[in-house]
């Protein structure tokens, strides 16, 4: 009522706690699902190294895998120096 009737008069529309709750939940659930255990991260790193090693000569020890989070997106970040490309073997 406040937001509808009086809100029109005073020109302010304050977000209801209901709307805030819904938005917070939607974000919280996304973040909850993005939580990755170290175990999974390690396994993923190993698989990625295996794939890259098929095409490039890389320094396996300096490879770094990370999950970066910003306001509303998260990214898988992988840094590795490439020593040389592997020659295609027919």
């Amino acid at each position: 009522m406040k937001n509808g009737f009086f809100g029109k008069f005073f020109g302010k529309t304050k977000e209801s706690s209901r709307d805030i709750a819904k938005k917070r939940l939607q974000f919280a659930l996304i973040y909850d699902k993005l939580e990755v255990s170290d175990e999974i991260l390690e396994a993923l790193q190993k698989d990625i190294v295996d794939v890259i090693s098929k095409y490039f000569e890389i320094d396996k020890n300096s490879l770094k895998l990370d999950i970066k989070r910003q306001d509303d997106l998260s990214a898988l970040e992988l840094n590795t120096p490439i020593l040389s490309a592997k020659r295609k073997s027919k």
Partner: peptide
């Protein structure tokens, strides 16, 4: 506007 509706819960 002080409580989630069932539709809100269902959406989430």
């Amino acid at each position: 506007g002080d409580m989630l509706s069932h539709k809100d819960v269902e959406d989430v």
